[in-house]
Design a protein around this nucleic acid. Structure first.
Length: 191
DNA sequence: TCACGCGGGAGAGATA
DNA sequence: ATATCTCTCCCGCGTG
């Protein structure tokens, strides 16, 4: 099994676990999915990478370590445990998803229509891609200006984990299936 | 030939 | 001090 396949299967396992846990949590405790509404801050605090996948760290954080360990044997890294706390930096694909969900940013980056509405394929505008990159640089608080070239390099790093893969088309990338599902769920406030 | 997007290596910065 | 993760920077290659 290569790293991408491994990551993909991990994501699937995690997703199944989250769905099951979420069902139980809703039934047993009556905890609201998203009682306060979502904003950028909660967004950052409720997700954390887990090895090659994403797992929530908000309301699910407490039982996560024990329960999740039964699902996968992959250990939590130092940074991952750190990020369960507050003040975690936003990751690039979170930012991109946010931009994709913002109609006002459609001139910079947009979903690519396809037969499957949830394909997760998106494309940068050839004219405004650097504007989006600059925004990312600002969000990160970089001293030097971010460019599309540098941002796309970071995007391609996600290919190793399967979170985002490169599509063989100019300026076009695709969210991993499970990553996209989790992002959508969170965006709808289901996690 | 040239511009542009892409891919890889190396290293910086943050954190435990 | 060390290890790990996530970018960031730079350089070279392929393509139209």
């Amino acid at each position: 099994m290569n790293s991408c396949q491994e990551a993909q299967s991990d994501l699937e396992v995690i997703l199944e676990f989250l769905e099951e846990y979420h069902r139980q949590n809703a039934e047993n405790t009556g905890v609201q999915d998203n009682p306060t509404g979502e904003d950028d801050d909660t967004w950052e605090q409720c997700w954390e990478p887990h090895g090659e996948a994403l797992i929530p760290c908000g309301p699910l954080a407490a039982p996560r370590e024990a329960s999740y360990a039964s699902v996968t044997t992959r250990k939590l890294s130092k940074q991952q445990t750190t990020e369960a706390g507050s003040g975690r930096k936003m990751r690039l694909f979170h930012f991109l998803f946010e931009m994709l969900e913002d109609p006002g940013m459609a001139h910079c980056v947009s979903w690519v229509p396809s037969s499957s509405s949830s394909s997760g394929v998106f494309r940068f505008s050839a004219h405004n891609k650097d504007q989006l990159a600059a925004l990312w640089g600002q969000r990160k608080g970089n001293k030097r200006p971010m460019t599309y070239q540098k941002m796309s390099r970071a995007l391609r790093n996600y290919a190793r984990s399967g979170e985002i893969v490169k599509v063989k088309k100019k300026l076009t990338y695709q969210f991993g299936e499970s990553t996209l599902m989790l992002l959508h769920k969170h965006h709808r406030g289901e996690l």
